[in-house]
Amino acid sequence: MSHDQSSYLGTTNHTNYTDSGASIASSLETDAEADIETDAEKQQLDDHHRHGTNSHHDDRKPQVIIANYTPRIDPLPPLALEAHNEFSELLLSNPYMWRDGEGPEEAVRNSVVWNTMSEKEREVAEQLLEQTCAVKTIKNADLTTFIQKFPVKEDEGQVPRRWLHPADFKDASKKERMQKYEEGGDVKFHSFHTSLSLLPPLGLKMRCYGSTRSYTSGVIFALPPTTLVSNKVEDEDIALRRTHTWAWPAGYAAKTEFNISHRGELINGRKEALVSITQLRSNNHSYIYDKDYGKFLIFSMVCLASRHLGLSSQSHYMFFR
């Protein structure tokens, strides 16, 4: 028997291949002994006999030899940084600075960073300082749902939708009540209500909603500077009331999904707990600057609870004392 030892691509070396049956193995040995020509092959056969069954066990797999194949692959060396490492240079990019003992309301521009900022970046930094913008953290798993609420799919014949506020249902037509939105209007995106947070200046001291792991990122919306109604500048708080833009103090569990009546009115004390945007800014100021803010917070909560229970203002103070 001649042995072809070529090792080109895809060649299978069946020289020592035996199937599972012992009879096949013995017949192979007989044939091999008859055809042995070289010393090397004699040596190989001797080894075969010496190792007995163990040798048979090792040789059962077919040996596939592939040209340029490297049996051992070294993994790529790891790079220096991982996802959890911090981009430390970002921490130095502070648009405002203030002295020790002062707060963000006394802040001055950090010219080193300010000069490298774009017009839009300056605008948003100023709005965060003046609390004229609101933020929303979005759960990572809900990002798609949130983003997809905005675009109008014109190629599908869609027109801009104005999703109804609970208070809008009573004036809506039957079709609109069923659809839960009004159609039309000279706007580019669908509009809908969502919960936002008015952070203290520059977002200091107050944690955004949700854990940093599940709510990794967020979006910022500018609040309207002034609203013109009948050619008169409307007060921000009046505009909020007129448009049913509800606001509650930080940390208040409004849970609107459970606390709105079928007529679109707030129930279970949620209406009484509403505050104006001016009040929110005032609370934020106290939170940043007052040393005994915890005491103030407890007092506010007691006031809210007692007002809900119909107690007199005197009782707030008595309870607090």
């Binding site: 921490l91 839009k120 933020v135 940093t212 910022i220």
Partner: peptide, 11 residues
């Protein structure tokens, strides 16, 4: 949205 933000400076 007028801006986007993250809550930690991790990569």
């Amino acid at each position: 949205p007028m801006a986007l933000f993250v809550r930690t400076p991790s990569y």
